[in-house]
Amino acid sequence: MNQGDPLDLLMQRTRNGDDAAYREFLEQAATRLRSALARKIGNDGELEDLVQEALIAVHQKRHTLDPGRPVAPWLHAIARYKLIDHWRKRGRSPVLHEDADVAVAEDEFASLDVEALLKELPEAQAEAIRLTQIEGLTGAEASERVGIGLSAMKLRVHRGMLRLKKVVAEKDG
């Protein structure tokens, strides 16, 4: 588990019976869901509906998150599912996100200690992945925070994910 991710810590506290932590967990989850979904559908009126739908799903299906597994990949998978369902209901067939390779990678890394793996990457790439994939910032938000251009940020994420795949393959092999 990524011990540095506040969502993981909140879920752990929640499981220990801390009622206040669950509310905080849902609030932070809502922020991440909003950020992730806004990248796909923009910041229009449908966004909040979709965020709420995803939050309800998170709550109803919380028994599918095993203790010890990181929250972020689970949360993003639910967001992706609800987004695709949303598009299906609307009869749209969008080209799925440009960073589809990232989505696949999230699944591959779901059961791993991502933070330990990130230590094996150059710090710039690890930071880019941390910001966009764990904290859920948009590419623009992440690039602004780091102080580089959007294209450079996308490149760092892309190269980082490729390197991460290699690291995982080496560990498996």
Partner: peptide, 23 residues
């Protein structure tokens, strides 16, 4: 308070313990 905040308050009030008999 936004409707999402209301929703969060409602969900949080339902309790924090997921079903222990999930498997």
């Amino acid at each position: 308070m936004s409707s999402t905040d209301d929703l969060i308050a409602g969900l949080a009030a339902e309790g924090v313990t997921p079903a222990s008999h999930a498997l």
